[in-house]
Design a protein around this nucleic acid. Sequence first.
RNA 1: GGCCCGUUCGUCUAAGGGCUAGGACACCACCCUUUCACGGUGGUGAUACGGGUUCGAAUCCCGUACGGGCUACCA
Length: 532
Amino acid sequence: MWCNECHRYKDNCLFLVPSPRYLCRMSKRVRVRFAPSPTGGLHLGGVRTVLYNYLFAKKHGGDFLVRIEDTDQSRYVPGAEEYIFDTLKWCGLEPDESVQHEGNYGPYRQSERKETYRKYAEQLVKDGFAYYAFDTTEELEKMRHDYKTEQNPSPQYDHTIRMKMRNSLTLPPDEVKTLLDAGTKHVIRIKVPEKETVSFIDMIRGKVSFDTSIVDDKVLLKGDGMPTYHLAVVVDDHLMQISHAFRGEEWLPSAPVHILLWKYLFGIENMPQWAHFPLILGPNGKLSKRDGAKYGFPVFAMNWTDPKTNELTEGFKEKGFLPEAFINLLALLGWNDGTEQEIFSKEELIEKFSMERIHSAGAKFDYEKAKWFNHEWIKKFEVSGLRFEVKSLLEKNDIPVSDISLLYKVIELVKDRCTLLPDFVQQSSFFFKTPEQWYVDAVKPKWNEEKKKFFELFIEEINALENWQSAVIEDAFKKMAALQNIKPGELQLPFRIMLVGGKFGPPVFNIAELLGKNETILRIQNALKVFG
RNA sequence: GGCCCGUUCGUCUAAGGGCUAGGACACCACCCUUUCACGGUGGUGAUACGGGUUCGAAUCCCGUACGGGCUACCA
């Protein structure tokens, strides 16, 4: 016995359980897909959709696949597809099946499946659920213009006007045949029923209903023979045995078209379970690829260069985010595990993720919080996990790193004060390169002969030190200060400037320890010449 | 305009009829530290509004307002 509401067999009926958000027991293998259109960089929302798909699949021991939805040839952007896979790789969210690793349901690029779709579209026409339409772009524009009123600013090609257009519903059959035989350019449109309520259970929102009287006759097969998203998504989700279909909330309004197609083509009971994720909002609404870096924070996962304009949009990766932090912050944008935990590894996310804990409201992206996540991850990271990144960053800034054991010690010492990876450059370059200039203004006003004498004596003192450790150096420093009758605090800043060049870095005696005795003395001597 | 979705501190969120509405980011103050951070302690700060239902509503229902999305031979 099938449920008329959720179209599921009795034990799986969504209405027999306490919450409409309940994930019904799955008899089928879990298979989910991310279906991007390769038209540019992948932004925050896209990566989060990938993430939620991935987590769901892994949690349920299922498959995560990526299907390239490139049915709009006019929007083809070279490099975009490769970029998507590079991004997934960086994020550690690699698909089980895709154009790069084909599974048993290929091809995974819709442009290569072109022939498949026509068959289904023709079937719909034959069954009376769709029709041929011959209207030209001009005729469509005219229709939109003629029927435009204040009440209805954007008229649709729907049941109220389809009988006034040029299509196989209005033209005599023989004329339709003649047009078709002559190879006249045409589209196939779905014939949406006039009065019907279609509904489905969204795993996040519960029951969502639509009245088909306001749904338009969407194009299914375009003039160039390619399917539109509406046809392709339904056909491919069926052919690829997708069990759960997740996408952004912007797709919710087209759900009735897809439901109808499932009903006409493969049976509503076979439709995957759907969930529409809340949108990630920027400062002015939905995040857009086109807005690039206008917000003052990245929107793309990685750097993206538009091949047409050569315009570079900076990504989270290049900004200095760790992939672990990036994923973590995305996961928490609209989901939480019900506890107060905020830092999760990918493995923990897989274990704890659940669709019913996804928030239904959109979330405004907060860059400050994003940085906090990264900071937490840098602090949490083992030095060995950071060393390649830091080394290459330093070398990019002309700071050669030859002593790897020093690098380890330096990273350990400074990582707590780095929020983004490039902060390591500021915090640690002076360990590898002697300062070329000093922030003299911070020292000069209070500089005097007594202080100069202190450092001259201090050089001698530490030169005799056998144990070169920060605590020993500090001890010597303070004893000498007491001997000279100067407050140690007044001497610490000059000392720091001597070793570092500026007012930053970890505790000064730790710096001296890592620098070594010779280098420390050398830097004091050099600086003394400048301080006068 | 129509349709759909949504609404708890500035931001992300917890609380699924029952305490002074909890946490995190950010902000402020203090402590630690005579660099800057980290860390610690404390503080400012929210249930959009109006009606119901109920002994009791942030929570359930209705309306209003506001926000967002969609309204292409784009996805």
